[in-house]
Design a protein around this nucleic acid. Structure first.
Lengths: 395, 395
DNA sequence: CTTATTTAATTTGATTTACAAATTTAATCC
DNA sequence: GGATTAAATTTGTAAATCAAATTAAATAAG
């Protein structure tokens, strides 16, 4: 409503600069449809504000005429932090405003669930420490994005439930903001993987895709129209607890037939245990190896997990019809689910149209990707804040 | 990008007028944040163009001062047609630009599947006839919205497959536009029910909701952010073919375990038949009545359908987390699935958060609702066209 | 019946903003 | 060193918004 035209121009140009990394004004004018005159005016404002900077074009332009001057986001403009709380560790990263990583940090935790105040204080300490690594302080951080497992109402920063917190229904976002003294942006960890894929990973350039993650649980992040889709309660997309079997296997959420109850580590181990009458104490890795080696029992357990997973994926496709599905996970942990045979079963289970089924890609990465996704989320929010501030500065 | 500010203003004001039915300028200014001066200018343009008209305010305002003058969409500005192709019939409606129904029509068809050219010609004839009922002609119709079952790529007007067409992969939208000589907007019928609910029904005022329909198949329309969500292939939301059972019952789509294969009419009858060893030839109504009357076999068939349906619904909730689910259907046809017990099972199957589960409402209506939804779709598109045209007129 | 009051709508004048066209800048080519 | 080329900026104009002043149309008061 009260978004005047100039603000729109600033936003589109800044976003375009960010997307391209480095780009000269004339291309900005072409791509956005904004006149060259206005591009000059607006980029001058952004330069004055320090959000962007000029760089001599390094593209091999041997042409005549005045050479292009590239514009890029000014990395030094803001300092961004991102973090992800895992089972018994915290990963943290520090990015500059361009998105390049300045520092990273892994912290072991002695327990899984924490009291929210303690956890906030602990995070404040570690983010501060990380900042000091590059001779900055916690107060210099313009925003901190944090990913946490569980059911999170992101816009409100409210945690309905999380395995990392001892209490339910915590205003964790507010607690964090108060403790750290800087803006904190909290979200479900699966959403932040989607964010990471969109900003740095395989989702770049895609406006609609789904990311499925398998850690200890099964998570999902949905990007629709270039934005992360969060249901109305702020906590949609509980893919792991979609039901794949009526009155099926018991899930740790207390319900029956959840997808997670068939594909998660604990589910596989539980089955192996019961098949052997309580004798089997193998780890997941061993079980998978045994399945590969021809062990019939292990094979059937793993195979069923794969079929269930394929069915869950197919349902996603039937409902969302995405152009891309990214199966994201740490290392090889869930490789049996990401196997080509599983994807093939999925393809058979989706509605058959004379059109290519969605592309399915597997993206394996380390622990820090989660934290980078969280930072990307903060980066988005801080950029928005920075542009918001300009309204007042210029006026 | 070449959307100038004035166009934005026109759009927001026109949309606001449409939403409120009748509203004075001063309230428009307040609601949209556009200044009173600009509201005067823009509404003057819209009046001159004939898209809106002034009506003396009938709101019981006994206050002093200059009385408010309400603005409303000018019904006579455009004539809109909507249609829906059912199994062996076509429903058609004619609306004015305000959305009030001017005429309706039901046509019997002698067959289910049609050759696309013939069907187009047939529709052209009947829409023309309907127009003549109110002393207008086919050429006076500004746009025709048509709903058809099957898999439709709405933006392209392309039908991948439909039970109403003999051929697959038909450019049916283009054929219709050519045959009728007016703009035609084609969509999947379930999407158009969502459209109808949003424009005239229970979805009014909701920006995010899901509509589930049960006719012969199970359909779904999804509204996200005030817009109908269509996957990337234009054909998302195949709720009826989400899988609820691995290697389950055979569906008419050729796959196994589809929701539809458990809840559709033919599925119920098939089961009754096989339970009785081929002796049972009851109709669905009889089967439902028998179940109510205590017949154990019928009861278990109906009950399982309900449980499967609840599971499918719960999966929708777990994935979308909508604020509202509308179960829309013709009359009592699917009442066994819409029963409170089924909804209760669904509530138990969704992820439990300390927050109210989505509201579920049942909306029963007649055949013409589909056609009205199609007309609403056309209305949207024609409004857009009309505003587009203004650019040239004013310039 | 006339005047004051109140509120909606319009008009006016100033300001913002975007853009086309003209100009300047900075390079290469000959 | 001038001609040429292309990017970026400056200039002048047109479009569009808005605050403030004005007009319009009603009721209330005297």
């Amino acid at each position: 409503m009260s978004v005047n035209q100039r603000e729109i121009g600033r936003r589109t140009l800044f976003a375009e600069i960010r997307r391209h990394g480095r780009i000269p004004r004339i291309n900005l004018a072409e791509l956005t449809g904004i006149s060259r005159a206005t591009v000059t005016t607006i980029t001058a404002e952004l330069l004055r504000e320090g959000l962007i900077e000029e760089v001599m074009s390094e593209s091999s332009d041997k042409g005549r005429g005045r050479p292009k001057v590239d514009l890029k986001v000014r990395g030094a403009a803001r300092l961004i932090a991102g973090g992800k709380i895992s089972n018994r560790s915290v990963s943290l990263v520090l990015l500059d405003f361009e998105g390049t990583q300045l520092a990273g940090h892994e912290v072991e935790l002695d327990q899984t669930a924490h009291e929210s105040g303690e956890l906030a204080a602990l995070l404040a300490g570690h983010v501060g420490e990380l900042a000091e690594k590059i001779d900055r302080s916690l107060a210099d951080v313009a925003g901190f994005g944090l990913g946490i497992a569980g059911i999170v109402d992101a816009p409100r920063g409210f945690v309905h439930w999380s395995p990392s917190l001892t209490a339910r229904n915590v205003e964790f976002g507010k607690i964090l903001t108060a403790t750290l003294g800087i803006p904190v942006f909290l979200d479900n960890d699966a959403n932040l993987v989607a964010m990471a894929e969109k900003s740095f990973g395989l989702g770049q350039g895609h406006s609609d895709f789904i990311v499925v993650t398998i850690e200890s649980g099964v998570g999902m992040g949905v990007v629709i129209n270039d934005e992360i889709y969060r249901g109305t309660r702020g906590c949609g997309a509980e893919f792991g607890h979609t039901k794949v079997q009526l009155e099926g296997a018991l899930c740790r959420c207390g319900q029956r037939g959840c997808l997670e109850a068939y594909v998660a580590d604990y589910a596989l181990l539980r089955e192996a245990m019961s098949a052997s009458g309580g004798q089997d104490s193998r780890q997941v890795e061993e079980l998978l190896a045994a399945a590969k080696g021809g062990d019939a029992v292990a094979g059937s357990i793993v195979e069923r997990a794969g079929r269930m997973f394929a069915m869950g994926l197919a349902n996603l496709v039937n409902i969302f019809d995405p152009e891309l599905i990214i199966l994201a996970g740490e290392q090889m942990q869930a490789s049996h689910l990401y196997a080509e045979e599983v994807i093939e079963v999925m393809r058979k289970l989706i509605v058959q149209v004379d059109k290519a089924p969605p592309e399915v890609v597997v993206h394996k990465w380390g622990n820090q990707m989660w934290a980078r996704g969280a930072a990307a989320y903060a980066l988005d929010n801080v950029s928005e804040l920075a542009l918001q501030e300009m309204k007042d500065h210029v006026a």
